[in-house]
Simulated assay, not measured.
Amino acid sequence: MKFQDILNSIKQRKYKPLYLLHGEESHFIDVLCEAIEKGVLDDAQKGFDQTILYGKDVDFSTIINAAKRYPMMSDYQVIIVKEAQAMKWKGEEEVELFNKYVENPTPTTILVLAYKHGKFDKRTKLYKNIEKVGVAFESQKLYDDKVAPWIVGEIQEQGRKIHPQAAALMAEYLGTDLSKVANEVQKLILNVTKDREISVQDIEQNIGISKDFNVFELNNALGRRDAVKAIQIVDYFAANPKSNPPIMVMATLYGYFSKVLKYHYLADKSSSAVAKELGISPFFVKDYELAARNFNKSKVFHVFHVLKDYDLKFKGVEVGPQTSEGDLLREMIFKILN
């Protein structure tokens, strides 16, 4: 089942007796756990029929014994095991004991295993049994190019709109940590009035990302071959190194020029095809068309050579002791444009 399908079924009170939530992306696991923790029982019922356990403090035998109990004050009892990846099996007997419970779970118990920062072994009998009677959901991290669409979708879910450039700017700066991104999304929802679209200016005011001097604008300046604007931006980066570390700038530039190179090799260069293949909003297709005109294939390969060279220099290879990161950034931009 997909994340949204599982969440919708929980909200509709269509519960399964067992949920195994595992994977590298903690955010989706946390959202599903919270939906069950807050939505199944009311506050009075929770005192009798809801139990929160932690993997490092509990074993499977204890969980099984708790799961076999019946609710006292409601239709269900809820047991949530957080950080379940920290649990240790006490031999094959315990595994088989848990398997037997999974094959015939207590229908009035909702047991949730929040198994974070890793994947449960899908080859095991236990995993396959969980799939048969309950929900086994793998929470996967989003690729970089999927974060901006996710931001747009999250805001649309709450009946709001965000400008594509604002979503792209958030994605560039906040990365793929969805818990962090989700917090910033909620900050915008609370602070921007409902009657208008969330703009780049709102991102600057509420999240602290400069709307004029950021990696997104640096990409655009390079794509236009606007040397003056590009140098102004890297000067700003040099003056604010904590907000704009070279490692982030380098990664963003590599991602940007990788898309420019991919554009060159697309057979179908219609707006919709480009947006789909590059994983961008149609709003930005013209920017990549311009960048591709300004950087042919040969020039893009030159850019990759420059980035590789300066990646080593930022790591201290063949760099004088007096050379600052700001100096290296300026040199790098000059070589990209020339």
Rank of each mutant, 00 (worst) to 15 (best):
K2F: 15
N8R: 06
K16H: 15
L20H: 07
L21V: 13
H22E: 15
H22N: 15
D30F: 05
E37D: 15
K38P: 00
D49I: 09
Y54M: 09
Y54N: 07
G55F: 02
F60H: 05
S61A: 12
I64E: 12
A66G: 10
K68A: 06
Y70K: 01
Y76G: 03
I80P: 04
V81N: 04
E93N: 06
E94T: 07
Y101W: 13
N104F: 07
T106P: 02
P107I: 14
P107L: 13
L113F: 15
L113V: 14
K116R: 14
F120K: 07
T124R: 13
Y127M: 05
I130V: 15
V133S: 05
E138M: 12
S139C: 13
Y143C: 11
D145M: 13
P149V: 14
W150E: 12
A166N: 06
A168Y: 00
A168D: 03
M170W: 02
M170I: 10
Y173R: 08
A182D: 12
E197A: 10
Q205D: 15
Q205C: 04
N206W: 06
D212P: 01
V215L: 10
F216K: 03
N220Q: 10
R224W: 04
F237V: 03
A238I: 10
P241S: 05
P245G: 01
K259Y: 12
L261F: 14
L261P: 08
H264T: 11
L266A: 09
S272Y: 02
E277G: 00
F284N: 00
V285C: 09
Y288L: 08
R293A: 10
N296A: 01
V300N: 11
V300Q: 10
H302F: 13
V303C: 12
K308Q: 14
K313G: 05
G320H: 05
S324Y: 01
E325R: 03
L328F: 04
L329I: 10
F334N: 11
F334Q: 13
L337V: 07
